[in-house]
Design a protein around this nucleic acid. Structure first.
Length: 422
RNA sequence: GGAAGGGUCGCCUAGUGGUCGAUGGCGCACGCUUGGAAAGCGUGUAAGCUGUAAAAGGCUUCGAGGGUUCGAAUCCCUCUCCUUCCGCCA
Protein backbone atom coordinates (compact mmCIF):
# COMPACT_ATOMS: atom_id res chain seq x y z
CA UNK A 1 0.00 0.00 0.00
CA UNK A 2 0.97 3.60 -0.48
CA UNK A 3 1.81 5.81 2.50
CA UNK A 4 -1.47 7.43 3.52
CA UNK A 5 0.36 10.62 4.47
CA UNK A 6 1.86 10.74 1.02
CA UNK A 7 -1.60 10.36 -0.49
CA UNK A 8 -2.94 13.17 1.70
CA UNK A 9 -0.12 15.51 0.82
CA UNK A 10 0.10 14.63 -2.87
CA UNK A 11 -3.52 13.98 -3.76
CA UNK A 12 -3.20 15.44 -7.23
CA UNK A 13 -0.15 13.35 -8.12
CA UNK A 14 -1.75 10.19 -6.78
CA UNK A 15 -4.96 10.89 -8.66
CA UNK A 16 -3.12 11.43 -11.93
CA UNK A 17 -1.00 8.34 -11.38
CA UNK A 18 -4.11 6.22 -10.79
CA UNK A 19 -5.59 7.62 -13.97
CA UNK A 20 -2.43 6.86 -15.97
CA UNK A 21 -2.59 3.32 -14.76
CA UNK A 22 -6.27 2.92 -15.65
CA UNK A 23 -6.97 2.31 -11.97
CA UNK A 24 -10.44 2.90 -10.62
CA UNK A 25 -9.05 3.89 -7.22
CA UNK A 26 -11.31 6.61 -5.82
CA UNK A 27 -8.87 9.05 -4.23
CA UNK A 28 -11.49 11.64 -3.34
CA UNK A 29 -13.66 9.18 -1.50
CA UNK A 30 -10.56 7.76 0.16
CA UNK A 31 -9.52 11.16 1.50
CA UNK A 32 -13.05 11.92 2.60
CA UNK A 33 -13.15 8.69 4.58
CA UNK A 34 -9.67 9.34 5.90
CA UNK A 35 -10.86 12.63 7.32
CA UNK A 36 -14.03 11.14 8.75
CA UNK A 37 -12.12 8.28 10.24
CA UNK A 38 -9.67 10.59 11.97
CA UNK A 39 -12.43 12.75 13.36
CA UNK A 40 -14.19 9.73 14.81
CA UNK A 41 -10.90 8.41 16.11
CA UNK A 42 -10.21 11.73 17.83
CA UNK A 43 -13.59 11.70 19.52
CA UNK A 44 -13.02 8.13 20.63
CA UNK A 45 -9.60 9.04 21.97
CA UNK A 46 -11.10 11.80 24.08
CA UNK A 47 -13.74 9.54 25.54
CA UNK A 48 -11.18 6.88 26.28
CA UNK A 49 -8.89 9.43 27.90
CA UNK A 50 -11.72 10.42 30.20
CA UNK A 51 -12.38 6.83 31.12
CA UNK A 52 -8.71 6.04 31.61
CA UNK A 53 -8.26 9.01 33.93
CA UNK A 54 -11.07 7.81 36.16
CA UNK A 55 -9.88 4.22 36.01
CA UNK A 56 -6.67 5.22 37.67
CA UNK A 57 -8.58 6.12 40.84
CA UNK A 58 -11.08 4.39 43.04
CA UNK A 59 -14.15 6.18 41.69
CA UNK A 60 -17.16 7.37 43.63
CA UNK A 61 -20.57 5.88 42.83
CA UNK A 62 -21.49 9.06 40.91
CA UNK A 63 -18.41 8.79 38.76
CA UNK A 64 -19.07 5.12 38.12
CA UNK A 65 -22.51 6.01 36.88
CA UNK A 66 -21.09 8.68 34.61
CA UNK A 67 -18.40 6.37 33.31
CA UNK A 68 -21.00 3.79 32.48
CA UNK A 69 -22.50 6.28 30.06
CA UNK A 70 -19.10 7.15 28.68
CA UNK A 71 -18.51 3.45 28.17
CA UNK A 72 -21.72 3.13 26.22
CA UNK A 73 -20.81 6.04 23.98
CA UNK A 74 -17.40 4.51 23.37
CA UNK A 75 -18.98 1.25 22.43
CA UNK A 76 -21.44 2.92 20.07
CA UNK A 77 -18.69 4.90 18.38
CA UNK A 78 -16.53 1.83 18.05
CA UNK A 79 -19.39 0.17 16.20
CA UNK A 80 -19.90 3.19 13.97
CA UNK A 81 -16.27 3.42 12.99
CA UNK A 82 -16.01 -0.18 11.78
CA UNK A 83 -17.72 0.25 8.40
CA UNK A 84 -15.86 3.52 7.87
CA UNK A 85 -12.55 1.83 8.49
CA UNK A 86 -13.47 -1.10 6.29
CA UNK A 87 -14.38 1.04 3.33
CA UNK A 88 -11.33 3.20 3.93
CA UNK A 89 -9.05 0.20 3.96
CA UNK A 90 -10.41 -1.37 0.81
CA UNK A 91 -10.09 1.95 -1.05
CA UNK A 92 -6.60 2.40 0.32
CA UNK A 93 -5.50 -1.04 -0.82
CA UNK A 94 -6.79 -0.24 -4.29
CA UNK A 95 -4.48 2.74 -4.78
CA UNK A 96 -1.64 1.66 -7.08
CA UNK A 97 2.00 2.37 -6.41
CA UNK A 98 3.55 5.45 -7.97
CA UNK A 99 5.26 4.97 -11.30
CA UNK A 100 8.93 5.04 -12.27
CA UNK A 101 9.56 8.26 -14.20
CA UNK A 102 11.01 6.40 -17.20
CA UNK A 103 7.83 4.36 -17.70
CA UNK A 104 5.80 5.20 -20.78
CA UNK A 105 2.39 6.67 -20.00
CA UNK A 106 -0.14 5.03 -22.24
CA UNK A 107 -3.72 3.85 -22.11
CA UNK A 108 -3.00 1.04 -24.48
CA UNK A 109 -1.41 -2.03 -22.97
CA UNK A 110 -0.04 -3.00 -26.38
CA UNK A 111 2.24 0.03 -26.23
CA UNK A 112 4.87 -1.61 -24.04
CA UNK A 113 8.22 -0.40 -25.40
CA UNK A 114 10.59 -3.10 -26.61
CA UNK A 115 13.99 -2.52 -25.03
CA UNK A 116 15.94 -5.16 -26.89
CA UNK A 117 15.63 -8.38 -28.84
CA UNK A 118 17.95 -11.32 -28.27
CA UNK A 119 18.28 -14.17 -30.76
CA UNK A 120 16.44 -14.61 -34.01
CA UNK A 121 13.21 -16.50 -34.62
CA UNK A 122 14.05 -19.57 -36.66
CA UNK A 123 12.98 -19.72 -40.27
CA UNK A 124 11.50 -23.17 -40.63
CA UNK A 125 11.69 -24.76 -44.05
CA UNK A 126 8.67 -26.81 -43.10
CA UNK A 127 5.29 -26.05 -41.56
CA UNK A 128 5.97 -25.81 -37.82
CA UNK A 129 3.55 -27.33 -35.36
CA UNK A 130 2.32 -25.65 -32.22
CA UNK A 131 3.17 -27.11 -28.81
CA UNK A 132 -0.17 -28.87 -28.51
CA UNK A 133 0.39 -30.73 -31.76
CA UNK A 134 3.98 -31.49 -30.83
CA UNK A 135 2.93 -32.75 -27.42
CA UNK A 136 0.33 -35.00 -28.98
CA UNK A 137 2.77 -36.36 -31.51
CA UNK A 138 5.27 -37.33 -28.81
CA UNK A 139 2.76 -38.15 -26.04
CA UNK A 140 4.01 -35.39 -23.75
CA UNK A 141 0.83 -33.89 -22.33
CA UNK A 142 -2.49 -35.48 -21.42
CA UNK A 143 -5.22 -32.87 -21.50
CA UNK A 144 -8.22 -35.16 -21.79
CA UNK A 145 -7.66 -37.14 -18.64
CA UNK A 146 -6.67 -33.99 -16.74
CA UNK A 147 -9.98 -32.49 -17.74
CA UNK A 148 -11.77 -35.53 -16.43
CA UNK A 149 -9.87 -35.51 -13.16
CA UNK A 150 -9.45 -31.79 -12.49
CA UNK A 151 -11.34 -29.88 -15.16
CA UNK A 152 -10.43 -27.64 -18.07
CA UNK A 153 -7.03 -25.95 -18.17
CA UNK A 154 -5.34 -28.65 -16.17
CA UNK A 155 -2.85 -31.05 -17.71
CA UNK A 156 -0.62 -33.98 -17.01
CA UNK A 157 2.96 -33.73 -18.20
CA UNK A 158 4.26 -37.08 -19.43
CA UNK A 159 7.45 -38.74 -20.56
CA UNK A 160 10.23 -36.35 -21.56
CA UNK A 161 8.18 -33.29 -20.62
CA UNK A 162 7.66 -34.57 -17.08
CA UNK A 163 11.42 -34.93 -16.85
CA UNK A 164 11.93 -31.53 -18.38
CA UNK A 165 9.96 -29.88 -15.59
CA UNK A 166 12.56 -30.97 -13.08
CA UNK A 167 15.39 -30.20 -15.47
CA UNK A 168 14.12 -26.63 -15.80
CA UNK A 169 13.85 -26.35 -12.03
CA UNK A 170 17.41 -27.55 -11.56
CA UNK A 171 18.73 -25.36 -14.34
CA UNK A 172 16.98 -22.22 -13.05
CA UNK A 173 18.14 -22.90 -9.51
CA UNK A 174 21.70 -23.41 -10.66
CA UNK A 175 21.80 -20.05 -12.43
CA UNK A 176 20.12 -18.14 -9.61
CA UNK A 177 22.20 -19.68 -6.85
CA UNK A 178 25.31 -18.89 -8.88
CA UNK A 179 24.27 -15.25 -8.48
CA UNK A 180 23.91 -15.57 -4.73
CA UNK A 181 20.22 -16.37 -4.46
CA UNK A 182 19.36 -18.75 -1.63
CA UNK A 183 17.20 -21.65 -2.82
CA UNK A 184 13.78 -22.32 -1.29
CA UNK A 185 10.84 -24.62 -1.69
CA UNK A 186 7.78 -22.83 -0.32
CA UNK A 187 4.25 -23.51 0.89
CA UNK A 188 1.66 -23.44 -1.89
CA UNK A 189 -0.97 -21.84 0.33
CA UNK A 190 -0.84 -18.58 2.24
CA UNK A 191 -3.02 -16.51 4.53
CA UNK A 192 -5.24 -13.75 3.31
CA UNK A 193 -3.38 -11.07 5.26
CA UNK A 194 -0.19 -11.92 3.37
CA UNK A 195 -1.89 -11.69 0.00
CA UNK A 196 -3.50 -8.40 0.94
CA UNK A 197 -0.34 -6.93 2.35
CA UNK A 198 1.43 -7.67 -0.91
CA UNK A 199 -1.28 -5.99 -2.93
CA UNK A 200 -3.17 -9.05 -4.09
CA UNK A 201 -6.89 -9.04 -3.68
CA UNK A 202 -7.97 -12.58 -2.83
CA UNK A 203 -11.69 -11.98 -2.33
CA UNK A 204 -12.33 -9.22 -4.82
CA UNK A 205 -14.57 -9.40 -7.85
CA UNK A 206 -12.08 -10.24 -10.57
CA UNK A 207 -9.71 -12.18 -8.40
CA UNK A 208 -7.35 -14.65 -9.98
CA UNK A 209 -6.97 -16.48 -6.72
CA UNK A 210 -8.37 -19.73 -5.46
CA UNK A 211 -9.57 -19.61 -1.88
CA UNK A 212 -9.83 -22.58 0.42
CA UNK A 213 -13.28 -23.03 1.86
CA UNK A 214 -13.77 -22.52 5.61
CA UNK A 215 -10.33 -21.01 6.07
CA UNK A 216 -8.44 -17.82 5.39
CA UNK A 217 -6.03 -19.60 3.11
CA UNK A 218 -5.55 -19.10 -0.61
CA UNK A 219 -3.62 -21.11 -3.15
CA UNK A 220 -0.69 -18.95 -4.16
CA UNK A 221 -0.59 -17.59 -7.68
CA UNK A 222 3.16 -17.09 -7.37
CA UNK A 223 5.95 -17.70 -4.87
CA UNK A 224 6.16 -13.93 -4.65
CA UNK A 225 3.47 -14.37 -2.01
CA UNK A 226 5.28 -16.83 0.21
CA UNK A 227 8.69 -15.21 -0.28
CA UNK A 228 7.27 -11.73 0.23
CA UNK A 229 5.55 -12.92 3.37
CA UNK A 230 8.70 -14.65 4.56
CA UNK A 231 9.92 -11.64 6.54
CA UNK A 232 6.57 -10.11 7.44
CA UNK A 233 6.65 -8.10 10.65
CA UNK A 234 10.44 -8.20 10.83
CA UNK A 235 13.10 -5.55 11.08
CA UNK A 236 16.21 -6.55 9.12
CA UNK A 237 19.65 -5.07 9.65
CA UNK A 238 20.98 -3.01 6.78
CA UNK A 239 24.10 -5.19 6.81
CA UNK A 240 22.11 -8.31 5.93
CA UNK A 241 20.58 -6.70 2.84
CA UNK A 242 20.04 -7.52 0.10
CA UNK A 243 18.27 -10.78 0.87
CA UNK A 244 18.22 -12.75 -2.35
CA UNK A 245 15.97 -15.77 -2.58
CA UNK A 246 14.98 -18.14 -5.34
CA UNK A 247 11.94 -20.28 -4.69
CA UNK A 248 10.22 -23.21 -6.33
CA UNK A 249 6.48 -23.40 -5.94
CA UNK A 250 3.32 -24.37 -7.67
CA UNK A 251 1.18 -21.50 -8.85
CA UNK A 252 -2.59 -21.54 -9.05
CA UNK A 253 -4.74 -19.13 -10.99
CA UNK A 254 -8.44 -19.16 -11.66
CA UNK A 255 -7.94 -17.28 -14.94
CA UNK A 256 -11.44 -15.90 -14.58
CA UNK A 257 -12.54 -13.87 -17.55
CA UNK A 258 -9.51 -14.67 -19.68
CA UNK A 259 -11.28 -16.83 -22.25
CA UNK A 260 -10.81 -14.46 -25.13
CA UNK A 261 -7.05 -14.33 -24.76
CA UNK A 262 -4.65 -16.75 -26.35
CA UNK A 263 -5.03 -19.82 -24.23
CA UNK A 264 -4.31 -22.87 -26.29
CA UNK A 265 -2.55 -25.75 -24.59
CA UNK A 266 -0.51 -24.94 -21.52
CA UNK A 267 -0.07 -21.22 -22.12
CA UNK A 268 -2.79 -20.16 -19.70
CA UNK A 269 -3.52 -22.84 -17.13
CA UNK A 270 -4.85 -23.20 -13.60
CA UNK A 271 -1.67 -24.68 -12.23
CA UNK A 272 2.00 -24.55 -13.12
CA UNK A 273 5.38 -24.75 -11.51
CA UNK A 274 7.50 -21.64 -11.25
CA UNK A 275 10.95 -20.76 -10.05
CA UNK A 276 10.81 -17.24 -8.72
CA UNK A 277 13.49 -14.83 -7.59
CA UNK A 278 12.77 -12.46 -4.76
CA UNK A 279 14.82 -9.68 -3.21
CA UNK A 280 14.66 -7.47 -0.15
CA UNK A 281 16.88 -4.42 -0.65
CA UNK A 282 17.55 -0.92 0.60
CA UNK A 283 15.78 1.86 -1.30
CA UNK A 284 19.12 2.97 -2.74
CA UNK A 285 19.84 -0.39 -4.36
CA UNK A 286 16.44 -1.57 -5.56
CA UNK A 287 16.80 -0.29 -9.10
CA UNK A 288 20.12 -2.04 -9.53
CA UNK A 289 18.60 -5.20 -8.04
CA UNK A 290 15.76 -4.96 -10.53
CA UNK A 291 18.23 -4.76 -13.41
CA UNK A 292 20.21 -7.63 -11.93
CA UNK A 293 17.15 -9.90 -11.98
CA UNK A 294 16.36 -8.88 -15.53
CA UNK A 295 19.92 -9.82 -16.51
CA UNK A 296 19.56 -13.20 -14.83
CA UNK A 297 16.32 -13.84 -16.69
CA UNK A 298 18.12 -13.02 -19.91
CA UNK A 299 20.99 -15.30 -18.98
CA UNK A 300 18.57 -18.15 -18.34
CA UNK A 301 16.83 -17.83 -21.70
CA UNK A 302 20.03 -17.20 -23.61
CA UNK A 303 21.23 -20.44 -22.08
CA UNK A 304 18.10 -22.19 -23.30
CA UNK A 305 18.74 -20.66 -26.73
CA UNK A 306 15.23 -19.28 -27.00
CA UNK A 307 14.76 -16.03 -28.97
CA UNK A 308 13.21 -13.36 -26.77
CA UNK A 309 12.71 -9.66 -26.40
CA UNK A 310 12.53 -7.41 -23.35
CA UNK A 311 9.60 -5.11 -22.80
CA UNK A 312 9.08 -2.33 -20.30
CA UNK A 313 5.46 -2.23 -19.11
CA UNK A 314 3.67 0.99 -19.93
CA UNK A 315 1.32 2.45 -17.33
CA UNK A 316 -1.72 0.66 -18.77
CA UNK A 317 -0.10 -2.71 -18.15
CA UNK A 318 1.45 -2.22 -14.71
CA UNK A 319 0.12 -4.18 -11.76
CA UNK A 320 -0.83 -2.23 -8.64
CA UNK A 321 2.24 -2.82 -6.46
CA UNK A 322 4.91 -2.25 -9.14
CA UNK A 323 6.64 1.01 -10.00
CA UNK A 324 8.19 -0.71 -12.96
CA UNK A 325 7.98 -4.11 -14.62
CA UNK A 326 10.12 -5.74 -17.28
CA UNK A 327 8.95 -8.84 -19.12
CA UNK A 328 10.78 -11.30 -21.27
CA UNK A 329 8.67 -12.33 -24.23
CA UNK A 330 9.77 -15.46 -26.00
CA UNK A 331 9.20 -16.17 -29.62
CA UNK A 332 6.50 -18.80 -29.96
CA UNK A 333 6.24 -20.13 -33.51
CA UNK A 334 2.92 -21.81 -32.79
CA UNK A 335 1.17 -18.74 -31.49
CA UNK A 336 -1.26 -17.04 -33.89
CA UNK A 337 -0.31 -13.41 -34.50
CA UNK A 338 -2.39 -10.35 -35.20
CA UNK A 339 -1.77 -10.56 -38.92
CA UNK A 340 -3.50 -13.90 -39.02
CA UNK A 341 -0.29 -15.85 -39.44
CA UNK A 342 1.68 -17.99 -37.03
CA UNK A 343 4.43 -16.94 -34.67
CA UNK A 344 4.33 -14.23 -32.06
CA UNK A 345 6.01 -13.01 -28.90
CA UNK A 346 4.53 -14.12 -25.59
CA UNK A 347 5.30 -13.37 -21.97
CA UNK A 348 7.55 -15.89 -20.26
CA UNK A 349 8.99 -13.91 -17.33
CA UNK A 350 8.20 -10.77 -15.43
CA UNK A 351 10.22 -8.81 -12.92
CA UNK A 352 8.85 -5.97 -10.81
CA UNK A 353 10.17 -3.44 -8.36
CA UNK A 354 7.46 -2.76 -5.80
CA UNK A 355 9.65 -0.33 -3.80
CA UNK A 356 8.09 0.03 -0.32
CA UNK A 357 4.52 -0.73 -1.39
CA UNK A 358 4.60 -4.33 -0.23
CA UNK A 359 6.89 -3.79 2.73
CA UNK A 360 4.46 -1.23 4.11
CA UNK A 361 1.63 -3.70 3.64
CA UNK A 362 3.48 -6.41 5.54
CA UNK A 363 5.39 -4.12 7.90
CA UNK A 364 8.87 -5.16 6.88
CA UNK A 365 11.53 -2.65 7.81
CA UNK A 366 15.27 -2.40 7.88
CA UNK A 367 17.45 -0.75 10.47
CA UNK A 368 19.94 1.64 8.99
CA UNK A 369 23.46 1.92 10.29
CA UNK A 370 22.44 5.06 12.20
CA UNK A 371 19.67 3.10 13.92
CA UNK A 372 16.76 4.62 12.04
CA UNK A 373 14.11 2.21 10.79
CA UNK A 374 12.45 2.45 7.40
CA UNK A 375 10.47 0.31 4.99
CA UNK A 376 12.72 -1.64 2.69
CA UNK A 377 12.21 -2.39 -0.97
CA UNK A 378 10.88 -5.65 -2.33
CA UNK A 379 11.30 -7.06 -5.81
CA UNK A 380 10.30 -10.19 -7.63
CA UNK A 381 11.29 -11.78 -10.89
CA UNK A 382 10.51 -15.00 -12.70
CA UNK A 383 13.46 -17.28 -13.21
CA UNK A 384 11.45 -19.87 -15.11
CA UNK A 385 7.71 -20.36 -15.45
CA UNK A 386 7.88 -24.02 -16.38
CA UNK A 387 4.81 -24.34 -18.58
CA UNK A 388 5.61 -21.32 -20.72
CA UNK A 389 9.27 -22.16 -21.00
CA UNK A 390 8.19 -25.57 -22.27
CA UNK A 391 6.04 -24.05 -24.99
CA UNK A 392 8.97 -21.99 -26.18
CA UNK A 393 11.32 -24.97 -26.11
CA UNK A 394 8.96 -27.32 -27.92
CA UNK A 395 7.99 -24.87 -30.62
CA UNK A 396 11.42 -23.33 -31.27
CA UNK A 397 13.34 -26.57 -31.14
CA UNK A 398 11.23 -28.68 -33.45
CA UNK A 399 13.07 -30.23 -36.37
CA UNK A 400 12.04 -31.13 -39.87
CA UNK A 401 12.01 -34.83 -38.99
CA UNK A 402 9.46 -34.14 -36.29
CA UNK A 403 11.88 -34.51 -33.37
CA UNK A 404 12.47 -31.88 -30.71
CA UNK A 405 15.98 -30.91 -29.68
CA UNK A 406 16.46 -30.65 -25.94
CA UNK A 407 18.40 -27.51 -24.93
CA UNK A 408 22.01 -28.38 -24.13
CA UNK A 409 21.82 -26.83 -20.67
CA UNK A 410 19.01 -29.21 -19.68
CA UNK A 411 20.49 -32.45 -20.94
CA UNK A 412 22.56 -33.29 -17.89
CA UNK A 413 19.37 -33.16 -15.84
CA UNK A 414 17.60 -35.49 -18.28
CA UNK A 415 19.96 -38.39 -18.50
CA UNK A 416 21.88 -36.72 -21.35
CA UNK A 417 18.88 -37.06 -23.62
CA UNK A 418 19.42 -34.96 -26.76
CA UNK A 419 16.19 -35.26 -28.62
CA UNK A 420 12.57 -36.10 -28.11
CA UNK A 421 11.56 -38.40 -30.91
CA UNK A 422 9.42 -41.36 -31.57
C1' G B 1 -7.62 -36.22 15.89
C1' G B 2 -7.18 -36.70 21.72
C1' A B 3 -4.76 -34.94 26.54
C1' A B 4 -1.85 -31.45 29.36
C1' G B 5 0.98 -27.02 29.81
C1' G B 6 2.25 -22.37 27.83
C1' G B 7 2.45 -17.49 24.45
C1' U B 8 4.23 -10.37 28.53
C1' C B 9 8.95 -4.84 25.72
C1' G B 10 15.52 -7.87 21.00
C1' C B 11 16.21 -12.39 24.62
C1' C B 12 14.93 -14.36 29.58
C1' U B 13 11.51 -12.99 33.36
C1' A B 14 7.77 -10.40 37.45
C1' G B 15 2.96 -9.51 37.42
C1' U B 16 -4.60 -13.03 39.26
C1' G B 17 -9.30 -6.74 38.61
C1' G B 18 -7.69 -0.10 39.83
C1' U B 19 -1.34 5.23 39.49
C1' C B 20 0.76 -1.62 34.87
C1' G B 21 2.84 0.38 29.02
C1' A B 22 3.79 -2.98 32.38
C1' U B 23 9.06 -5.66 37.23
C1' G B 24 13.99 -7.44 37.28
C1' G B 25 18.11 -9.43 34.52
C1' C B 26 20.77 -10.01 29.87
C1' G B 27 21.82 -7.51 25.55
C1' C B 28 22.35 -2.73 23.27
C1' A B 29 23.48 2.85 23.29
C1' C B 30 25.63 6.99 25.70
C1' G B 31 28.35 9.02 29.87
C1' C B 32 31.67 8.49 34.17
C1' U B 33 35.97 5.66 35.42
C1' U B 34 40.87 3.87 32.66
C1' G B 35 47.09 4.76 29.43
C1' G B 36 43.55 1.40 26.91
C1' A B 37 40.11 -2.40 27.99
C1' A B 38 37.30 -5.44 31.44
C1' A B 39 34.74 -4.84 35.84
C1' G B 40 31.99 -1.13 38.36
C1' C B 41 28.66 3.13 38.51
C1' G B 42 24.93 6.34 36.15
C1' U B 43 21.37 7.31 32.27
C1' G B 44 18.55 5.58 28.36
C1' U B 45 16.36 1.46 25.66
C1' A B 46 8.76 -1.05 21.89
C1' A B 47 5.79 0.16 18.01
C1' G B 48 1.69 2.45 15.57
C1' C B 49 -1.92 6.38 15.26
C1' U B 50 -3.16 11.35 16.51
C1' G B 51 -1.35 16.06 17.59
C1' U B 52 2.43 20.38 17.21
C1' A B 53 6.36 25.04 13.81
C1' A B 54 8.84 21.75 17.08
C1' A B 55 7.38 20.03 21.73
C1' A B 56 3.94 18.70 25.30
C1' G B 57 -0.25 15.90 25.42
C1' G B 58 -3.89 12.02 24.00
C1' C B 59 -5.21 7.01 22.05
C1' U B 60 -4.08 1.80 20.80
C1' U B 61 -1.21 -2.62 21.40
C1' C B 62 0.82 -7.88 27.15
C1' G B 63 -0.61 -14.26 20.57
C1' A B 64 -5.69 -12.80 17.79
C1' G B 65 -10.85 -11.87 18.25
C1' G B 66 -15.09 -11.43 21.36
C1' G B 67 -17.39 -11.04 26.40
C1' U B 68 -17.92 -9.53 31.81
C1' U B 69 -16.79 -4.70 34.45
C1' C B 70 -17.12 2.13 35.92
C1' G B 71 -12.10 -0.15 35.05
C1' A B 72 -8.77 -6.25 32.21
C1' A B 73 -1.92 -8.34 31.06
C1' U B 74 -4.95 -10.15 35.15
C1' C B 75 -11.84 -13.18 35.04
C1' C B 76 -14.95 -15.90 30.94
C1' C B 77 -15.54 -17.74 25.66
C1' U B 78 -13.63 -18.79 20.68
C1' C B 79 -9.55 -19.16 17.60
C1' U B 80 -4.34 -19.47 16.74
C1' C B 81 0.72 -20.74 17.61
C1' C B 82 4.51 -23.30 20.60
C1' U B 83 6.07 -27.50 23.94
C1' U B 84 5.22 -32.54 25.80
C1' C B 85 2.50 -37.20 25.59
C1' C B 86 -1.00 -40.49 22.80
C1' G B 87 -3.17 -41.77 18.05
C1' C B 88 -2.50 -41.56 12.73
C1' C B 89 0.49 -41.02 8.73
C1' A B 90 4.22 -39.33 3.23
Amino acid sequence: MLDIKFIRENAELVRQNAKDRLSKADIDRLLELDKKRREMEAELDNLRAKRNAVSKTKPTPELIKEMKEVGERIKALEEEIIPVNEEFRSLWLAVPNMTHPEVLVSENEDDNPVLETVGKPANFDFAPLDHVELAEKHDLIDFDRATRVSGAKFYYLKNELALMEFALIQYALSIATKHGFIPFSTPDLAKREVLEGLGFNPRGESTQIYNVEDSDLSLIGTAEITMGGYHMGEVLDEEELPKKYVAVSHCFRTEAGSYSKFSKGIFRVHQFTKIEMFQYTTPETSEAAHREMLEIEKEIFKGLEIPFRVIDHCTADLGGPAVRTFDLEAWMPGKPNKEGGMGDWAEITSTSNTTDYQSRGLNIKYKKKDGEKAFLHMLNGTAVAVSRAMIAILENNQEKDGSITIPKVLRSYMGDLKKIKK
